[in-house]
Design a protein around this nucleic acid. Structure first.
Length: 281
DNA sequence: AGTCAAACCTGGGCGC
DNA sequence: TGCGCCCAGGTTTGAC
């Protein structure tokens, strides 16, 4: 479910609610969600800590604590961070509960149990596996056309694989990869080495920012599970042009949207609007 | 270096 | 109603 726009929406909602609060109690109901430290120590270390800030890097949520520790949460497919009254009964898939000092809880809920939590000293964030290998942050000012061109240049991946590879650009998942490639009129199986024309490179760079920004503005996309920390669904699914539209006519040209598999991921595209590039010769 | 399949899990949707 | 199968927004690992 959650890609950059959804994770950003969760972070924004958490900033309104949990920053400044104190964690009064911690309950880990499914220990495997907590990677480090071991669950018992995790609870001990979090208790009585004050929440200083909430940040995002790629698809990671970083809850910063005043004692210079950071709680790093990855939602994977079905994870949710919910801000709920402690009087509401925890659900079947509520795995971690942080009780706050105002009668509310910050709860981690995850049907498929793929998500992770790590509590690390803030100065060791850069060593956390996964977080330490992330590429450019696409909504930051540092994501310039030049920086983007430089990473594109050295790669020989399929365009779709390039966008999904978190070491290149952080935060893009299956939905937005398809939407970005449609806007940039690039075939998902074209290798990045074919994307050399300046207008193509700039078009792709622009599409990345544009699709992600638009999605953030609409509170992300809710396909099945995603909600923000208030339990609110996103609205950007209403603006998807190719994702989930296989067999339906293209919004731009009326051709049938096709669905193929690229490294196991379903990929929707318009064969007319996104023609294959052919290498010279 | 790049690609792919499998693994981690539960639940929804489909065909029979 | 129920069973079996396939599918799902992510990441890591190991094999080719």
């Amino acid at each position: 479910m959650p890609e950059l726009p959804e994770v950003e929406t969760v972070c924004r909602s958490l900033r309104q609610t949990v920053v400044g609060r104190t964690i009064t109690a911690v309950e880990v109901r499914l220990p495997k969600i907590v990677h480090r430290p071991e669950a018992e120590q995790f609870c001990q270390l979090l208790k009585q800590q004050n929440i200083a800030d909430v940040a995002r890097r790629g698809k990671y949520i970083i809850i910063k604590l005043e004692a210079k520790q950071a709680l790093v949460v990855h939602l994977r497919m079905t994870g949710k961070l919910l801000y709920e009254s402690c009087e509401i009964k925890p659900q079947k898939h509520t795995h971690v509960i942080l009780s706050l000092d105002n009668g509310y809880d910050l709860r981690y809920d995850d049907t498929r149990q793929f998500g992770t939590m790590d509590l690390v000293p803030e100065n060791q964030l850069q060593q956390l596996p996964g977080l330490n290998a992330l590429g450019l942050e696409p909504l930051e000012n540092s994501f310039t056309l030049e920086a983007f061109s430089n990473i594109l240049k050295g790669k020989h991946q399929k365009a779709k694989s390039f966008l999904l590879d978190q070491r290149n650009i952080a935060g893009i998942g299956n939905i937005y990869a398809d939407e970005i490639l449609f806007q940039a009129r690039i075939h998902p199986e074209d290798t990045t080495s074919l994307i050399t024309a300046p207008e193509d490179v700039e078009g792709l760079w622009f599409a990345i920012r544009d699709r992600l920004c638009q999605a953030v503005d609409h509170g992300g996309s809710s396909i099945r599970d995603y909600v923000d920390s208030f339990g609110q669904a996103g609205r950007f699914q209403n603006y998807h042009k190719v994702y989930g539209r296989a067999g339906q006519p293209c919004i731009t040209c009326g051709s049938m949207i096709e669905s193929i598999k690229i490294s196991g991921r379903s990929t929707c595209f318009c064969p007319n609007c996104q023609p294959r590039r052919v290498s010279a010769g």
